[in-house]
Design a binder for these strands. Structure first.
Lengths: 337, 337
DNA sequence: CTGTTAGCGCCTTCAA
DNA sequence: TTGAAGGCGCTAACAG
């Protein structure tokens, strides 16, 4: 069809395609008036770069791939948005893929992204399998893990919220309010970030003499529905706990649903603390107390490291970066009466 | 670097690259045992197709581009998810871009997508400028508009929720509940979908003898914040209206925020009806009555039309498709006392 | 059933 | 400052 190529422009301008290519790439070694003339012709004839050809011959695409699991979790939607914005400013485009490490088909996604010659990949996952996966592909392409790591000594570039610290902060906060018997809802044992959160919480609680009853989420995602079912399970029998720490805000929202059904008042009958600070946590009817995930900072730090790695493939900077969460006090936690 | 190409495999297998290519593309005209041998070698040597090269030489990428504005609106997040799923089943990948037609830089996004030789584009927008934009690019690439159109006679392939019908349904529903004085919050005059919603609502209201006071949203998106401010404006002075129809659910959530601030009870003091049925509308603390956007159906219909257009470029099917919304009665509307 | 050949559109040395 | 030429990895006729 009528796609106009570099060759067409060259012919019309009476120059070689090398020159046109130079102009297109902003090479300084080209006569200014020639440059302008060629640029004009490009506009005039509606020339559009074939990015496939460019990528093929240059070996760079200015594309960053990102794999994440739950775009319907506002936390991830926010992250995707922030990532896109961050990258665009730096001349990169985002190739966003939905995929869950636990699903097994994630290799296909990597192959897809690498096959498209993205310059780097951000994998948003705290799955236990993630580090191994990354190690396998790291020899082909720069990757940054946005998600928890079991062993901080691990030589995998990664950026994530300090879930262990968050768990501790949660325990301390609830303790400060006088809660000594608490429940932890939504533990995921296949997930490093959740694991750290749980461990941090449990350790601090233990130190403070609190008792913790834990409800585990066997699924691979933390949805409102899961939170709802876990909370039902919790509320169904008499309980002595005066506070609930939810593994994340979506779980907490599910807890609120269930509480309403059971005519349990939050925070009068029981306090509720979330994690992430998704946008709906701040909604007036909800006003969930929670720990802010610092999503934008996390994702921008991850992207920054990735771009560094892309631009300096040699400079091995595999130290994990942890971002501390921030307590956001709203209306769902109150002192024990 | 150590990327293994089709040529390497060919050499190792002692065949020509054409044969390897055939195997990779599932051509039946290859001896089965040769096929298996080559496949084995590919696995063994970690061969990975270069999708850029493939796209360049074949002219097809199996990529579908999608441009949408608000990934942070759960409605769009859901749509993106549904789209991705729908496409993947059919062998296509999604290249998702955030962009707003009104921002003016959308031409760059089109150029980016076309430059990457996506096979087709879905533009999610109801902006007034969208039709013209599409007409400009339609000669280069199949496009389906997912969003409202002013004139259904327009020869632009498009799929969208029937907002006019939705507006009418809203008016009828509120009328049936006894509301004769109502407010419409969040009208956007730069947006066909919102315009149709408003017109349908106004027309039906008029027919039924209802009075409508309209509050316009001058921004390019409908967020909770906008709804909040509009509602404040509304609540600030004494009002006679007994019901509010919000242009969409996010606006409605904003209205709920403001109402709480003003100690106005929904639905006791005033009824509230939304549009879209985003996931949070169903949340127990919210229970927003609304009209379901049929987001999945809309987006799948759009994608289906796009794929048809890609596969049969000749078959001109430019008739707009409208999907009727569905009333979802929850707790925010009640009969006028 | 398989190989040869000629591109796809662009970038990038190397010469001039 | 510009041009010529080769190649990026793959596909797609056309032969055989």
């Amino acid at each position: 069809m009528g796609t106009v190529t570099i060759k067409d422009i060259a012919r019309i301008a009476g120059v070689s395609c090398a020159t046109v290519s130079r102009v297109l790439n902003g090479s300084p070694t080209v006569a200014p008036e020639l440059r302008d003339k060629i640029l004009d012709l490009c506009r005039q004839y509606g020339y559009r770069r074939n990015l496939l050809a460019r990528g093929l011959s240059s070996g760079r695409t200015n594309l960053v791939g990102c794999i994440l699991s739950d775009l319907d979790n506002p936390l991830f939607a926010d992250m995707a948005l922030a990532l896109e914005r961050f990258l665009r400013v730096r001349g990169y485009h985002l190739l966003l893929c939905r995929g869950r490490v636990e699903d097994g088909n994630i290799g296909q996604l990597f192959d897809f992204l690498i096959g498209h010659r993205v310059d780097g990949i951000i994998l948003a996952s705290s799955s236990k399998q993630a580090p191994e996966l990354i190690r396998r592909y790291l020899k082909y392409i720069p990757i940054v893990l946005q998600g928890g790591l079991d062993d901080p000594q691990l030589t995998i570039p990664s950026v994530y919220v300090d879930s262990a610290a968050g768990g501790e902060m949660a325990a301390q906060y609830l303790f400060r309010l006088g809660h000594t018997e608490v429940a932890y809802l939504g533990a995921r044992e296949n997930n490093y970030s959740h694991l750290a959160r749980q461990r941090g919480f449990a350790a601090a609680a233990d130190r403070l003499g609190m008792s913790v009853r834990t409800f585990t989420n066997g699924a691979f995602s933390s949805t409102m529905e899961v939170g709802y079912h876990l909370a039902r399970q919790f509320f169904l029998n008499p309980f002595r706990e005066t506070a609930v720490f939810a593994a994340c805000d979506t779980i907490a929202l599910g807890v609120m649903s269930a509480a309403r059904e059971f005519h349990i008042s939050i925070p009068d009958d029981i306090s509720l603390l979330g994690f992430d600070n998704i946008i709906y946590a701040g909604f007036p009817h909800i006003r969930l107390s929670t720990l802010d995930h610092r999503a934008r900072l996390v994702v921008e730090t991850a992207a920054d490291r990735l771009l560094t790695q892309i631009q300096h493939p040699d400079a091995a900077c595999a130290q994990p970066v942890m971002i501390p969460p921030v307590l956001v006090e709203r209306a769902t936690c109150k002192p024990r009466r």
